[in-house]
């Protein structure tokens, strides 16, 4: 297994020459015989927020699964902070500072809020620190700490999932459809948190259907289609790309 070093002190003012936090080179992945990723090239600069957009079935979720180690790429290379990590297990990657808020419920419904956060300490940080930080960030969770996670509302579950993902003090945070099934105002407040987290120097790769929320917090954006990244750039660049793609350059 590839060893990954944990970048504990995220260097906010990393020089331009520092390796990007995440670099994917020609990544392929398949479910059985059906190839879902067909050569993805993507770079997330250190400390940046990248919004990954694309239609259903474009391969966004699969890409996150590959980056988080849940799925092994059939081809291609994944570099984290300049280190080659293809084939590392998801738990090793989590402990190394790559954490994910997965699509849907990223919590254990039959455990209490506190037990969920307790398990977050498998990432290597002390549970007291995790709890203090999580309750400070999301006071609502403190009120509900003895409740089963499954009895929380959708937004609260997502808060818990986010708090847990932050428990590892991640260098790279992967967010998959944070907004799914949530009311717009709740989504907005979740993304306010995401913006705060980004300000603290955490690099974030966000896959989102509510493109508006994701683009609001993003430094860069990328568009996936048919298992490839077909466009990348800064939000306003992407804006013109998207505009051209969809409006035929007339808008």
């Amino acid at each position: 297994m590839t060893q990954v070093e944990h970048d504990h002190n995220h260097n906010h003012a990393a020089p331009r020459s520092a390796p990007p936090i995440l670099e994917l080179i020609n990544v392929h992945a398949a479910y059985g015989r059906i190839e879902v990723l067909r050569g993805v090239d993507l770079t997330v600069p250190r400390g940046a927020v990248l919004a990954l957009l694309g239609a259903n079935g474009a391969g966004k979720t699969t890409l996150l699964r590959v980056i988080s180690g849940l799925m092994e790429p059939t081809e291609g290379d994944i570099h984290l902070g300049g280190m080659h990590v293809s084939g590392a297990s998801p738990d090793a990657l989590t402990r190394a500072g790559v954490t994910m808020v997965p699509e849907g419920r990223g919590v254990f419904p039959n455990l209490t809020v506190e037990e969920n956060l307790w398990l977050g300490s498998y990432s290597g940080r002390h549970v007291d620190k995790i709890l203090t930080e999580a309750y400070h960030r999301f006071p609502r969770l403190k009120e509900r700490r003895r409740q089963l996670a499954g009895s929380l509302s959708g937004g609260e579950q997502q808060m818990l999932s986010l708090a847990r993902a932050l428990a590892a003090d991640p260098a790279l945070l992967l967010l998959d459809e944070l907004s799914m099934g949530l009311a717009p105002l709740i989504v907005e407040s979740l993304y306010d948190r995401v913006a705060e987290i980004a300000e603290q120097g955490v690099s974030i790769l966000v896959v989102e259907q509510f493109a508006s929320s994701a683009l609001r917090v993003a430094d860069y954006a990328a568009v996936m289609h048919g298992g490839r990244v077909v466009a990348t750039g800064e939000p306003d660049e992407i804006e013109s790309v998207l505009t051209e793609l969809y409006f035929g350059g007339t808008a």
Binding site: L53, G54, A55, N56, Q209, A211, S212, L215, V223, H225, V230, A231, P235, E239, L242, T243, L245, Y246, F247, A251
Partner: peptide
């Protein structure tokens, strides 16, 4: 218009 474009993209089968 970005939001609209994004919506269209979600709807569109082929962004090219």
């Amino acid at each position: 218009d970005i939001a609209a474009a994004a919506t269209a993209m979600l709807a569109a089968p082929n962004p090219t």
